[in-house]
Design a protein around this nucleic acid. Structure first.
Lengths: 173, 173
DNA sequence: CCGCGATCTTTGACATCTAAAGCATCCTGT
DNA sequence: ACAGGATGCTTTAGATGTCAAAGATCGCGG
């Protein structure tokens, strides 16, 4: 505890733990884990966001959208993009507008179904994303450089359970 | 792998993993852990956000701000709030505006220093937050109900390392 | 006592987000 | 056929987020 707290009390990062009505030591482990994941993702997201902006003039949601398309050479329906990115449909419209204006993606209505729009990476989008992704991966390796492989692997396994649990509650109700 | 994927492929939640330029099995564990944390926090955040909205007409950032003040009976400077919530100063202004309009917090300029504004919970803010926090804690227990205490404890410990690592990189550079 | 950098909050321009409504298009059952 | 529900995208209103710059105030050194 002392070590954990010493990190936060002297740094500009937030300490969410022990802040929500009395979460303590062994108490309320779900709440503690939740708050810890939140503070980590917030902290790292901001750094990634900052680097994407200064090094590539891009935003994190834009990077995310490009990543989805990079893995789908045939392109994706906008609604499929919104499902995979876990954002609402309305969100994708503006995001795709900007990326299309930047020439990184194109919208196509090739289907017989005129309701459907498919987004694809352009050649430039593919090249740009490829460079960004390599940098992005390096940033993460750097940020987690002090974490041993064992801890990474175990976290990955445990968090799979967390994800499965939350998933189950969210779809089976 | 199969089990992990089976969860995602049939559900409306995103599968970030295996999506960013070829992250695979034992490869790039940092990237995989990052994407997993991201998808979990996104998934759970949306559920929490939804419940806060339908049950209390509140938003997650508002809940977060109230939580910070709840733990600080003397109130907090707006800049201290922004530090703890890990958002920029400009963000706090509007957030505090709305909460003040709702009568949940007050801004006071009691100091000799007229630059400083301190935000405090009102009685109503304290009572409201207290109820929301209890519900919030229950939601999390429910969402993580299938995760055994051991996995929770180990995740907590491992993620402390991740947090410390990221923290170190972000402040020592 | 005065200037000038440091500190604190707000403002302004934009990009993301959500929820909900609006439109167009498709498809199915009769 | 065709009415009506389902599906897919966009639009709207409002909240949140960033960054950068503007204002206000403080405090210290000369």
């Amino acid at each position: 505890m002392a070590s954990e707290h010493s990190i936060d009390s002297s740094e500009p990062s937030a300490d969410f733990e022990i802040l929500v009505h009395g979460a303590r030591q062994g108490q309320k482990p779900q709440l503690r884990l939740w708050l810890r994941m939140l503070s980590i993702t917030k902290m790292i997201s901001q750094e990634i966001r900052r680097r994407l902006r200064v090094e590539f003039g891009a935003t994190l949601p834009q990077f995310d959208l490009l990543a989805q398309l990079y893995r789908a050479p045939e392109g994706l329906k906008l609604s499929e993009l919104s499902r995979r990115m876990m954002v609402t449909n309305g969100n994708i419209t503006g995001l795709a507008d900007r990326l299309e204006a930047d020439g990184l993606i194109v919208r196509e209505m090739l289907n017989g179904d005129r309701r459907v729009t498919v987004a694809k990476l352009t050649r430039r989008g593919r090249e740009t994303f490829s460079i960004m992704a390599k940098a992005h991966e390096g940033w993460l390796r750097d940020l987690m450089a002090d974490v041993d492989e064992g801890a990474l692997a175990e976290s990955l396994a445990h968090l799979a359970k967390v994800k499965a649990s939350a998933n189950r509650r969210l779809v089976e109700d």
